[in-house]
C-alpha cells in the first residue's frame, strides 16, 4: 500500500489550508471503493478519473558494482478536482511527480506539478505510459522503462517482472480505518532493475529490485488520521511484507499488512497483527530505526534507514528512503513516514 500518495490531495496550496487531515474529508460526486473488486488489465493500470486520488508509486533498492546501497523513487500522483477527465486547460485532473535517489550520504529530490488535459502529464493504460514532463514510466508491466531528472540527478532504468501482481487486503480492497475507509490497492513487488544513476559524482551503473504500487480511492483516511508509517520489506528467503501504521489523533494506531510468502501466496493481516515500534529518531525527530514484528509469521526484525536524512523537500514534506532489515529475517526495503513536519 502507499497511503503516502494521499499527499496528492495535499498539492501545495491545499496542504496549507487542510493538512493531511484533509484526506479524511468526504467529497461528493466521486466513486467510493467497494468490496470484492474485479480488476481488468491493462485497463486498471490506467487512471480512474472518477476517484479523487490515485498513484503509481515505485521504490527500488539498488546496489552499485562496489556494493554501495542506493534507493530510488519514482512516483506519479493524480488528484481530481472533479470526477471527470476533461480536456484542455480546464481539465480537473492535476498531476504531481516525485523522484528521488538516496545514497548512504546524500538524498536527491525533485518534484514536478502539472495539469492534465494539455498533455503535460497523464497516464494511458494501453499502451501503458505514465508521464509528467520528461519523466516517464512505460511498457507492458512485464518490462517497463523508467526515467526521471532533477537539478542535480537523473536516472534511466529497465524493469523486468519476476512474479505476479499481489493484491492487498481483501483481493485488492484495502481497509484503512476502523470506520471503513478503503482503497483499491495492488502491487508488482517482483521487479528486477538495471540502469544508470546520473549523480553529481558521476554516472553509477546499478542493479536491484523494485516494488511498484497502484492505489486509488476517494477518501482513504479516517477523519481522525493524521499520517502514516509504511514499510515494504523484501526478505532474503524470498518472502515479502507490506505493512502500515496509521497515526490517529487520539495517539492510537490502525495497522494492516500483507504477508507474501516465498511462493507468492498472500495473507492479509487484521488490525493489530502488524506491530511497528520506533527505536531511534534522527536529528529532525523522525524515527529512522524501527522494531517490526508480525508474530503470526515469526517476523521480528529491526528496520534501519540506510540514510537517516532521506527527507523529501517537496511541497508537502515527508520521509522516504531505503532501509536495511536485520533480526529474524534479513533483507532490504523501503520506509515512508508522513505527518512529521
Amino acid at each position: 500500500m502507499n497511503v503516502k500518495a494521499l499527499i496528492l490531495c495535499a498539492l501545495p496550496f491545499m496542504a496549507h489550508a487542510q493538512g493531511f487531515a484533509g484526506l479524511g474529508t468526504e467529497v461528493e460526486g466521486f466513486s467510493v471503493p467497494q468490496p470484492n473488486p474485479i480488476f481488468t488489465f491493462p485497463t486498471d493500470h490506467g487512471p480512474h478519473n472518477d476517484y479523487r486520488i490515485e498513484w503509481w508509486y515505485l521504490t527500488a533498492n539498488l546496489a552499485g558494482a562496489d556494493g554501495t546501497d542506493y534507493g530510488l523513487q519514482w512516483t506519479l500522483f493524480r488528484s481530481a478536482l472533479a470526477p471527470e477527465e476533461g480536456a484542455g486547460w480546464t481539465a480537473p485532473q492535476l498531476w504531481m511527480g516525485h523522484a528521488a535517489v538516496t545514497t548512504p550520504d546524500a538524498h536527491y529530490v525533485s518534484e514536478r506539478l502539472g495539469r492534465g488535459g494539455i498533455g503535460q502529464a497523464g497516464v494511458t493504460a494501453d499502451p501503458f505510459v505514465a508521464w509528467i514532463d520528461d519523466w516517464e514510466l512505460s511498457g507492458d508491466w512485464n518490462t517497463l522503462a523508467m526515467s526521471a531528472s532533477g537539478a542535480d540527478f537523473a536516472y534511466d532504468m529497465d524493469l523486468t517482472a519476476q512474479g505476479p501482481l499481489v493484491f492487498h487486503g481483501d483481493a485488492g480492497f484495502s481497509v484503512k480505518s476502523a470506520e471503513g475507509q478503503a482503497s483499491y490497492y495492488y502491487s508488482q513487488p517482483y521487479f528486477d532493475v538495471a540502469g544508470v544513476l546520473a549523480l553529481p559524482t558521476g554516472d553509477v551503473p546499478v542493479t536491484g529490485s523494485a516494488w511498484l504500487d497502484r492505489e486509488w480511492s476517494s477518501q482513504p483516511l479516517g477523519e481522525n488520521q493524521t499520517g502514516w508509517d509504511w514499510f515494504s520489506l523484501s526478505f532474503s528467503d524470498g518472502a515479502k511484507l507490506m505493512g502500515f501504521r496509521l497515526q490517529q489523533t487520539d495517539g492510537a494506531h490502525f495497522t494492516a499488512a500483507t504477508w507474501i510468502a516465498a511462493d507468492g501466496a498472500t495473507t492479509a493481516m487484521e488490525d493489530g497483527a502488524f506491530i511497528a515500534v520506533p527505536l531511534d529518531e534522527n536529528a529532525q525527530g523522525v524515527p529512522v530505526r524501527w522494531q517490526v514484528t508480525l508474530p503470526a509469521h515469526d517476523v521480528d526484525v529491526t528496520v534501519t534507514a540506510i540514510n537517516d536524512n532521506a527527507w523529501m523537500t517537496t511541497s508537502v514534506p515527508y520521509w522516504e528512503g531505503p532501509v536495511r532489515v536485520t533480526g529474524s529475517h534479513q533483507g532490504r526495503g523501503y520506509l515512508e513516514m508522513t505527518g512529521y513536519e
Binding site: G114, I118, G119, Q120, W131, D133, D134, S149
Partner: peptide, 13 residues
C-alpha cells in the same frame, strides 16, 4: 500549447 507541452516533455521547466 503544443510548443509549451513539447518543451515540458523535453525537460524544460
Amino acid at each position: 500549447l503544443t510548443t509549451y507541452v513539447a518543451l515540458r516533455r523535453a525537460g524544460w521547466l
